[in-house]
Write a protein that binds this DNA or RNA. Structure first.
Lengths: 312, 312
DNA sequence: TTGAAAGCGCTAACAT
DNA sequence: ATGTTAGCGCTTTCAA
């Protein structure tokens, strides 16, 4: 493949001049410029991005840190990031962690080595404080509410939306509500908000045996439904952390020919529309969009994306 | 951030030695190595990937070319690619095309400039022949059956599976079958296979007004269903190009309180399980997996992934 | 307006 | 076993 040397040699101009027609065309005589450009077209020349980045000391890559997972949650955020990145010419590199903290640290180091112009942590294991300490002057964004931590962030106001949802559930006359989540309230703000919202609406703590952890997929939903069907105290409503998961629960009750409890999901509006249960729209694609914009802009900024409770 | 110069200076060894402890540790005395590594840890040093790649003349990035689209089809393939890439240390860069041929050409040029170790075309606009001519000696893989073209490929044996599906439809007694696709049979092998399979099973061509093009999303499915509901010759079966699309059709008939036609989708096993209609599993994640492996291996190879017709 | 040369951080001969 | 040096392809002073 042709290098800048080739176009210099063939066009008869110097390296510096060719570089100028690429980067500062206004500083070169129109005739020269035309001739150089002709040669470049002729050779099908494109600058070597690596060399250019090394010389410049920066690049236009944004790394997206996420567990390697097929969850729709991530797919939607990635999609939003891609949509936002495309018109800007930035490239998106997928950085899977496999839930390994050391892997995250490695990506952070690569950020400091300027392998990336910015890093979006869609999910993280590493402590926020550590993230912040590593981020001095760098473009780092986290997809969650970070409170006072000096880290750019996009997040949703889950609490009021969860309260809306629980109020609706209560008004429908449901009494025995179960909640499915991935992580425990101690490990995840989302789960913590969930139990807080429950308490504020129902006036008492969510019973331990009504909070089921480790639920991530439709299959998990199917399995956890078995638990409730065989528990001696049946539930009449299941608040699932995802429409697909709610669908898994639906299937389990359906297959068992048991009376269907009330159901609620999040994100996938198609499934919940089909099954006519309410859902919460977290506007994941918008979150991705905003995350990208924060990553390429200087300074720490926090942005709230409002989520909606939706009855079909 | 620390460079290799810093660790050389601070450890008291030369550039070459430090480089050796990174790249050829067996060529350096254990004591030296230990001391250099201590300094590297101390400085939290990580090699600058850009510089290294430039020097080496290659890197471990695989570009994935795809329209910037949120379709589950792409999400599943990307997921397979990521899963396969992670343990190898290769990085995945998303390369959206916006269906623009020039954008695809640009990525090809970047491949030749060694910006990528390989390119996976999940979808393409550019002609196969042109792809091939640009790919001399490079790692290029295409996610479709390329016939005799000397380009690595992963593809599914759609035709026999489509025939299985049409035979099943016929055996159920359906007579008036409609088919939904994204692109016309002239533009897309998938669509061509579809009409071929129809003909071979039913013994006649699929009537023009039974083949609806431009269908991509659940909403499209909903809209196209309106067409069939108002057409003077109603259909009794709709073969949709995706479970979500089939679900859109389902909703439309359901909302209109019309008699539900037979339905078939592809890919999303959850929706089709919920609605109990048959589907086709194209094993998209496997396709991604194989595509990655082909991209990092030398030589042209073709790999067939068998798809399955599934009745729930 | 154009050219010459230094340097980005690293690797891999080649010397010692 | 370790050090020295050229060079990867490019950008950007600085001179002419």
């Amino acid at each position: 493949m042709a290098t800048i040397h080739d176009v210099a040699r063939i066009s008869g101009y110097s390296l510096g001049t060719v570089s100028n027609v690429i980067n500062h065309p206004q500083n070169v005589a129109p005739a020269t410029r035309a001739r150089v450009e002709a040669v470049m077209a002729d050779l099908d020349y494109t600058p070597n991005a690596n060399a250019r980045n090394l010389s410049l000391g920066h690049n236009r890559n944004i790394g997206v840190v996420l567990p390697n997972s097929t969850l729709p949650y991530f797919a939607h955020i990635i999609d939003g990031i891609m949509q936002a990145a495309f018109p800007t010419g930035y490239r998106i590199t997928l950085l899977p962690t496999n839930y390994d903290e050391n892997q995250e640290l490695q990506y952070l180091r690569e950020l400091q080595q300027k392998s990336y112009a910015g890093l979006i942590f869609v999910s993280r294991q590493i402590a926020l404080a550590q993230l912040q300490s590593q981020s001095a002057g760098h473009q780092l964004v986290v997809c969650e509410d970070v409170g006072d931590v000096a880290l750019s962030s996009v997040y949703t106001d889950r609490l009021p939306t969860y309260e809306d949802a629980f109020r609706w559930i209560q008004k429908q006359g449901y009494r025995d509500v179960a909640v499915l989540t991935q992580r425990s309230p101690a490990d995840s703000q989302t789960s913590a908000d969930l139990v807080t919202a429950y308490r504020s609406v129902f006036g008492h703590d969510l019973p331990d045996d009504r909070l089921r952890l480790g639920v991530m997929t439709a299959r998990d939903g199917y399995d956890v439904a078995q638990y409730f069907m065989t528990a001696h105290a049946p539930v009449d409503f299941i608040f699932a952390n995802g429409d697909d998961i709610a669908a898994g629960v639906y299937l389990a009750y359906h297959d068992a020919k048991r009376e269907m409890p009330g159901l609620l999901g999040t994100e996938n509006q198609l499934t919940s529309r089909l099954l006519k249960f309410p859902t919460i729209n977290h506007h994941l694609s918008t979150i991705g969009h905003v995350a990208f914009n924060l990553a390429v802009r200087a300074g720490v900024r926090h942005q709230l994306i409002k989520s909606d409770f939706l009855v079909h």
